[in-house]
Write a protein that binds this DNA or RNA. Structure first.
Lengths: 336, 336
DNA sequence: TTGAAAGCGCTAACAC
DNA sequence: GTGTTAGCGCTTTCAA
């Protein structure tokens, strides 16, 4: 290996080469403080020439900023999250942030570990899809680090929240099933999260006593939940799934039992993953703009971070952030 | 907002509270240097009590380590990458690393920007799926920062590389198509990467002159490439796609032209995405262990990082890393 | 508009 | 086994 002996070019090297003090170099880089355009240009040229890169560590030591933001999610292998992540990456890049990602598998322990590591890593804020942690923990985290919770009710009015409109999405799905003539609906609920908006909305919109079976929000989880639900409630002719992955599992299970989708049993998913249209049968599902969700999460976090920087001292409290709700629509394909 | 006024607990606070010097605290934390078990326990207790968190910045300033590693990939929305990323996250976590992820869309400019940001961010190494950057740039990067290239030939013997065995995978796909009786094969190649192992292997295994059309490695890219190829070569009865996404696009295009898969035209994909089995028709594809790839990448990087730490001075050069090749197998489903 | 001094919190090297 | 000394490279006072 021929990794270089780390002969770091420091701000002093630049200062010396440019014939100024190191403070002037700092001013030239950060565009702060008064400095003549001429010296500024000269210093910048020297920086370029020496290929000088300020040390994040030294800088962070003074400023407490690393230009990093944390993203906590439960399962990067669920295509929903990558779609959101793209939005997060793009928006973060535009605001000069790098993103450190933590996968939690919806375990409370791993969620708090992730939060702690992000905190200790000097990130400036966190975006979190927390499925297991309680509100108190989130509030505590927010005391240490700007936080935006995703797809979850704000744990306190002070904490920012961006979600898609699960209540509306779920209602649209149930109404569609009813309109198709289904009288006996069942729901495959994902055993994650704390709000259970989809479950509550389903319970409210479907006939009282409609069965709900819970399982991991994955293909196999959906297959198992569907098998159980159909076994216990053979009258059911339509399934509403927590997400597209569970819907895929349900279709698999249905097929294995020799039941045709949608003729014998309809299935509606949630998320509208890219591949939903190419499944067999193409999946009827609730669409949300995942990229936009990612972008919005970053914007919300950025607003908080900037506000914090402004009132450096414990000046005026910033007003509580307005929770954001992103729209949901139904996409009818052939599975229901 | 009620973010706390940042009254940081420092190593000195702990030292004072525990009645020791701050160096002893450091020793207790890092398990380095000689220290009695008794004082160690006492210090650790004090740390716990004061909820002390060492500053990454201060520590990084001395050690040049942030406990971070960079992951550069072209498209997190392509399910192949999340599958790899899971392996990376898990292995990185096990080795005490956090992962900062950069999405490049296979643009050379964004690949080098990502590399630079990771470097400046103080990461200890990079794992990169570089699709556009030249070997020289990679070698230059490796001079500044331990690097492992993924799914690409090592740009120099000194650079570590972990890839899946595309040559074998491609050969298996082509042989299967031949065995099914197809005489006229075509390939939909992804317009990314620099090695073109899949393309070369296809050209070598298929009949001379078999058509190859290139496009973005996405669903729409695959649809467009398939439409073009079939338009120009109506004799083709079997398509080998660069990846599953292009295969899905091909099936879409075929269907739109009223051609049945696999009867009118067979399609083989590459990657074996989770949903491949649930597509219509279920996709015959080349399987690789993506999680294992992610894990192996981290292990390779970790080995380099540790080796570098060991010979702090420019001691003995480490031996060149052995390029790793991960196996590929064919999964026959109904699309071919 | 610029420079000098001070110190952020930590660990490596050396003394004891 | 433990403490002391000396910075790491930067930005924030403050003075010129």
């Amino acid at each position: 290996m021929e990794v270089e002996p780390s002969v770091r070019v420091t701000i002093d090297d630049v200062a010396r080469a440019a014939g100024v003090s190191r403070q002037t170099v700092s001013r030239a880089m950060n565009g702060k403080g008064e400095i003549s355009a001429a010296t500024r240009r000269r210093v910048l040229a020297t920086i370029e020439e020496l290929d000088y890169r300020p040390s994040v560590f030294a800088r962070g030591m003074r400023t407490q900023r690393a230009g990093t933001l944390g993203l906590i999610l439960s399962d990067i292998a669920n295509p929903f999250f990558p779609a959101v992540a793209r939005g997060v990456f793009d928006a973060a890049g535009a605001h000069g942030f790098s993103v450190v990602v933590h996968n939690t598998d919806a375990h409370a322990g791993r969620e708090s570990t992730a939060a702690r590591e992000i905190l200790e890593g000097g990130a400036e804020g966190v975006i979190g899809f927390f499925e297991a942690l309680g509100d108190e923990e989130l509030v505590a985290l927010h005391r240490r680090l700007p936080l935006v919770v995703a797809d979850r009710r704000a744990p306190a009015p002070t904490v920012a929240s961006v979600s898609s409109d699960f209540a509306t999405g779920t209602r649209l799905a149930v109404e569609h099933l009813h309109a198709q003539g289904h009288r006996h609906l069942g729901m495959l609920d994902g055993a994650v999260g704390v709000d259970h908006v989809r479950r509550h909305a389903f319970a409210a919109a479907a006939a009282p006593g409609s069965p709900i079976v819970t399982g991991p929000p994955t293909i196999t989880g959906g297959a198992a939940a569907a098998a159980q639900l159909l076994g216990e409630h053979p009258e059911v002719t339509a399934l509403f799934a927590f997400n597209d992955l569970m819907a895929v599992g349900a279709i698999r299970a249905l097929r294995e039992r020799g039941r045709h989708v949608p003729d014998d049993c309809a299935v509606v998913g949630y998320d509208d993953l890219t591949l939903a249209a190419d499944l067999d049968p193409p999946l009827t599902t609730v669409h949300t703009d995942k990229y936009e969700l990612g972008r919005t999460l970053v914007e919300a976090l950025d607003a908080i971070v900037r506000a914090r920087r402004r009132d450096t001292g414990d000046t005026g409290d910033t007003p509580d952030p307005e929770p954001r709700l992103l729209p949901a629509t139904l996409v009818v394909r052939r599975s229901a």
